[in-house]
Design a protein around this nucleic acid. Structure first.
Lengths: 206, 206
DNA sequence: CTATCCTTCAAACGTTCGTTTGATACGGAG
DNA sequence: CTCCGTATCAAACGAACGTTTGAAGGATAG
C-alpha cells in the first residue's frame, strides 16, 4: 500500500499539492497530507523542517521549470525583430497553460497558485517575489517597451490584475475537459489565443 | 472602548468580513474576530450558532442587496428593445463594482468573495447557488439569448470563468486608490466600461 | 562482525481551535 | 416587587493542530 514508485518526499509534495488546492494552506493539515501520501506524520518535519517550508517546496517544484520556460520564451521573442505585445503575452501564457493542462498534477498546482494569488499573504508574496520576481520584472520591462504611453504605476497594477485573472482562469481551465473530438494541441492553441487576446485588451485599454 | 454605535451582531459581522478577507475562512479564528469586534468569544455562537453560520451571515448581509440590484438592472435591460450583450454585462458588473468601491467594508467583502471563488468549497457553493443562483440563472438565460450560436455547456463554463475573473479583478480594484484628480464617478464609469469590454470579448470568442 | 548514517515510526508535547456551560446583569411586563 | 427572556461574561470542554522526541529499522562502509 505505502509502496509507490515515488520517494517519500515526492509523495508528500504530490499529496500536499492536491490538498492545498482543495482546502487551502491553513485548511489542509499535515495529518491529512501524510495520510494521503501514506507516510508517517513526522516525515514532513524530517524532510522539510516545517509546514511553511513544505508549502515553499511545493511551489518550487513547479515554478522553477515554469519560470525557466517563460524566460526562454521571452528571450526568443525579444530576439525577434518587430515583436508584438501579443508575442510577449504568448511567452507568458503558453508555458503556464501547458503546466495547467499537464496530466501529472498540473491542474491541482494551478488551482493552488490561484488560491495563493487570492490570499494576498505577505509571507508568500515575499517568497514568490524573491525567487521568481526577476523573470516577472523582465516581462514588465518588455511590456513597458511595448506600451510606452502607459505610466509605470498604471502598468504594474494592470499586470498584477491581468496575471491574477489569467491564473484564476487557467486554474478553472484545468478542471474542465476539452470538447470531445478536439485534439489536445488544438485545444491548447485555441485557449492560448483566446487568453492572449483577452490580456492584450486589458493592457491596451486607454 | 467596547462601546460603539453598532450592535454586537453588526460589529461581529464587520470584523469577520475584514478578517475572512485577510486570512481566509479557515485561517481567521473566532478569537481573532471577537477580539477585533470587542465582544465576548461566546457571542458568535450565541448570535449565529456556529462559525459556518457566521460565514453565511456575512455573505447574506451584502449579497441580498447586490442580487436585488443586479436583478433590477437586468429587468431594465430586458425591457429595453435592442438590448446588447454589453448592456446585460453592465447590469451584472455595475452593481458589483459599486459594492467593491463602497467605503464601508465593500472592498473587504469583495476580497472575501474572490477567495470564496478560488476555494471551490462545496458547502459554500451550495449555499450561494441555493440562495442567489436564481438571479445568476436569469443572467445565463439572457446571455444565452444574446449568444445563440454558443452551446449551453460552453456558455456555462465561460460564464463561470468570466464571473470569477471579474470578481478577482474587482477585489483588486478595491485595494487600489484611483488616480488623483479623477472623480469617483468618472473612475467608476471608466472601470465599468473596461470590464464590460473585457467580459464581452471573453464571451464572444468563437 | 561492528559502526555509522539516513529514514521511519508511535507517542507525546504544548497550543489553539470551535463550542458549551453556568453564572451574572439588565430591563420591561404582570 | 417579582418574574422572565435577552444578553454578556469568564471558564472550561474535547478535538485537532504543528512540532519534537527517542527508539527502531535498514542499508552501506570499514
Amino acid at each position: 500500500m505505502s509502496a509507490s514508485q515515488f520517494s517519500t518526499k515526492q509523495r508528500i509534495l504530490g499529496a500536499a499539492e492536491t490538498l492545498f488546492a482543495q482546502h487551502g494552506f491553513a485548511g489542509a493539515s499535515l495529518r491529512q497530507v501524510t495520510n494521503a501520501a501514506n507516510v508517517n506524520l513526522a516525515a514532513v518535519n524530517y524532510h522539510f523542517g516545517s509546514k511553511d517550508n513544505l508549502i515553499e517546496a511545493v511551489f518550487r517544484r513547479r515554478l522553477d521549470a515554469l519560470n525557466a520556460r517563460r524566460h526562454a520564451a521571452l528571450s526568443r521573442v525579444e530576439a525577434k525583430p518587430g515583436a508584438s505585445l501579443e508575442d510577449a503575452l504568448d511567452a507568458f501564457i503558453r508555458p503556464a497553460l501547458e503546466l495547467a493542462l499537464d496530466r501529472h498534477g498540473g491542474a491541482a498546482f494551478m488551482r493552488m497558485l490561484a488560491r495563493a494569488y487570492a490570499e494576498h499573504d505577505e509571507r508568500l508574496r515575499t517568497f514568490l517575489s524573491d525567487n521568481y520576481g526577476h523573470v516577472l520584472r523582465e516581462f514588465a520591462v518588455a511590456f513597458h517597451r511595448m506600451l510606452p504611453h502607459l505610466a509605470k504605476e498604471e502598468l504594474y497594477w494592470r499586470l498584477d490584475i491581468v496575471a491574477g485573472a489569467l491564473t484564476y482562469t487557467m486554474a478553472d481551465f484545468g478542471l474542465i475537459k476539452r470538447r470531445a473530438g478536439t485534439s489536445e494541441s488544438a485545444h491548447r492553441e485555441y485557449t492560448v489565443e483566446h487568453l492572449v487576446r483577452f490580456a492584450a485588451a486589458g493592457l491596451r485599454a486607454p
